[in-house]
């Protein structure tokens, strides 16, 4: 079933994330980084920040999307400043585009997020494209 285009512009209420040293350490361990403790978060940690409070699941639920049908198609980060242990960050996430391909067999959801610090300002922007397989894929097909 196609996603209702009325969801374009859907935004979660902004939320605050505390970045602890332990949080960064756990992420580093999960990605196999064994360079020792680091004060600055690695590049894709922004995804963990914006994903706090189960935010991605909440957006997909609001759009009525079945999790079995989603794949992450694209991800882009723009970095304006480092994310550091001890930061309290403000996150905003908005559904900025909805489109389909293959006569509606595949829907795309674009979610744009910003991560900001009260004193240091905007630290990063994220743009995520989620692919939703509406029709059963042919055997062996993944996209």
């Amino acid at each position: 079933m196609a996603i209702d285009r009325a969801h374009l512009g859907y935004a979660l209420p902004p939320f605050t994330v505390e970045v602890t040293a332990a949080r960064i350490a756990l992420f580093l361990k999960a990605i196999g980084a064994d360079d020792g403790p680091q004060d600055v978060a690695p590049p894709t940690f922004m995804k963990a920040v914006e994903g706090e409070q189960n935010s991605s699941r909440r957006i997909l639920d609001a759009l009525g999307v079945d999790l079995r049908r989603v794949l992450h198609a694209e991800q882009q980060f723009d970095y304006l400043g480092p994310i550091r242990a001890g930061d309290h960050l403000q996150v905003q996430r908005t559904v900025s585009d909805l489109y389909d391909k293959k006569n509606g067999a595949i829907d795309f959801i674009v979610i744009e997020s910003t991560v900001s610090h009260a004193e240091r300002g905007l630290l990063g922007r994220s743009r995520q494209v989620v692919l939703v397989r509406n029709a059963q894929p042919a055997a062996g097909s993944t996209s």
Binding site: I31, G32, A33, P42, P43, T44, Q75, Q76, Y79, S143
Partner: peptide, 25 residues
């Protein structure tokens, strides 16, 4: 993407990363 990003963190740590994007093929 994080594993791909390890290349940047380990090999180009002296530089400032301004953008990182990926398509999952």
């Amino acid at each position: 993407m994080a594993l791909l990003g390890r290349l940047l963190s380990t090999q180009f740590a002296a530089f400032t990363l301004t953008r990182f994007d990926a398509r999952f093929i």
